[in-house]
Amino acid sequence: MMTFASISLSETDKRALIIFLILAVIVLLLVALIGFAVRKAITFQMKTLDTMMHDVTVTHVVENPKEFKRVGRIKNNRLFYKQSLIPFLIALVGLVIWIITSLAKSNWGINPFEESKDLLFAYDMEEEGLFVTVFGIRLLSHWPNVAHTPEFILEHLPSYLEAICFIVAGIYYLVICQAYFSRYIMILRRSRTVFEKSLEGYNATQGTEAPTNPENK
């Protein structure tokens, strides 16, 4: 038993605290990395919008924020459609495999995600003494025992393919939605900034009379 600042920690508590700290750091790092990636992706997609709207803006074909938003929205929707073709096609492939498998097995209740768990580890989370309570927080006391090791079952092959197709299509579509949202934000931002006029540092008297009327000098 170790005593630290009038708090006594047992060996189990000490181990749990260390695990908690390590997990907290890992989670924080992962969260920061995800956030960083999201921010980078948004910035990249915003530049795409600039490319799309550059010509019509610099040639003054679009001359007010309303027109800018209208043209930007049409282009953004078109690009969204074109980009979403790929994930929809991938999902369609998964759907076709699922339909063929269901027809072949005469079973329309196949859950490809459930059958795909064959390929993953499974842990026994019901084990006694797995969780401990430290400072009122329920934490893992040790790594749980493995309840299932990955195995490949040939009969479940269509389900594996379907699950992969659906997961890839879903993530792809999510990224595309994120890109669409980023471009939309940029449309709103640029429609304000591109056409804004500033009077900062401008003096009407000096600006109009001083250069043209030499008697004022």
């Binding site: 920061a32 956030g35 999201v38």
Partner: peptide, 15 residues
């Protein structure tokens, strides 16, 4: 960058 990353990550559920 780390701090901004955490901020964005906190906003991630809303996103």
């Amino acid at each position: 960058q780390f701090g901004l990353g955490i901020l964005w990550a906190l906003l991630f559920p809303i996103l």
